[in-house]
């Protein structure tokens, strides 16, 4: 059962260069994703591709000069700015990426308590800290005193105490320590097993594959493919989009072959398929118009050649 649907979401920023020319930076274009209760959807894409803005758009906390179009539905009803204000922190919670998202001058215990929407905040905070093996002294600490792992668990706690049904985690595994990554991922699995819908935004396709039920591949501001995690096997024959295939092949345990070229900048997107300039399968037709998202073998793909 889908709980959150994002349809044709586009986000752009107006910028003025030389105080005269107006440039529209389209950072997200016609993006589609769906979240289901009890499932983890990983949104995977290279760093700096505007993935975080997807989270901000869902929560309605984009900067004021952002232009948003498309529809976001929560529990079947459209998520208007008013509903976003009412629901964020309560039904939809964000797990940010680093300790910088905590107020540097406020004790972390207090910051977790502000996320508690029902019941006794102090006991809820203590319970969740205990659960995440954060000592009693941690609640009186300031963010700068936390270690990396403690900071991550504190950030998780804020989502845990809020009783939200949708958890959006933005790059929750920035570190390299595999043990820590494993622990973090297990925490999200736990959320999903408790009936939450989890959106994991990450650049790390390997850890995403370990934990997610579905993978949405994000390229230059849009999703090029949505595939069940089972498709990522062997030489990637089951994968639909050329970019996803290339990502899969670039992994160390596979061919370890990097993709030539780089992502287009939001100010100079190609007119047709966004991946066309780097695609091995590109034809003249690909340059005509951006391909539509279409269903293919129990998944979705944005490529005219995919079979």
């Amino acid at each position: 059962m889908s709980i959150l649907e994002v349809e044709n979401l586009s986000v752009s920023f107006k910028q003025y260069t030389d105080g005269f020319k107006e440039i529209n930076h389209k950072v997200i274009s016609s993006l589609n994703v769906t979240l289901e209760a009890g499932k983890i959807l990983a949104v995977v894409g290279a760093s700096g591709s505007g993935k975080s803005l997807l989270a901000h758009a869902i929560l309605g906390i984009l900067p004021s000069n952002a232009n948003v179009s498309g529809i976001i539905k929560y529990e079947g009803k459209e998520l208007t700015p008013i509903r976003q204000t009412a629901l964020r922190g309560k039904e939809i919670a964000l797990v940010p990426q680093s300790v910088n998202f905590l107020d540097p001058l406020m004790r972390v215990g207090n910051q977790v308590r502000t996320s508690v929407k029902n019941g006794d905040a102090v006991s809820a905070q203590r319970k969740v800290f205990e659960r995440y093996r954060l000592g009693k002294e941690v609640e009186d600490m300031y963010p700068f005193q936390l270690s990396g792992g403690m900071a991550r668990r504190t950030l998780l706690s804020t989502a845990m105490v809020s009783d939200a049904k949708v958890i959006i985690a933005d790059e929750p595994t920035p570190g390299l320590d595999p043990v820590v990554i494993k622990e973090a991922l297990d925490n999200f699995r736990e959320f999903a097993d408790n009936g939450c819908a989890v959106m994991l935004i990450t650049h790390d396709i390997e850890s995403a594959l370990q934990i997610a039920d579905k993978i949405a591949v994000f390229y230059a501001g849009t999703t090029v493919e949505i595939a069940p995690v089972e498709d990522f096997v062997g030489n990637g024959e089951a994968i639909r989009h050329p970019y996803t295939k290339a990502l899969w092949r670039a992994l160390p345990q596979n061919e370890f072959r990097p993709i030539p070229g780089s992502q287009p900048h939001p100010s100079s997107l190609p007119p047709g398929c966004l991946f066309e300039p780097r695609c091995e399968m590109a034809t003249a037709e690909c340059r005509q118009a951006p391909p539509k998202m279409r269903e293919l073998r129990d998944g979705m793909v944005r490529c005219i050649h995919a079979t």
Partner: peptide
């Protein structure tokens, strides 16, 4: 970032 996160939590 911390004000962004505070807003994300409904403040």
């Amino acid at each position: 970032d911390y004000v962004l996160f505070a807003r994300a939590r409904g403040e």
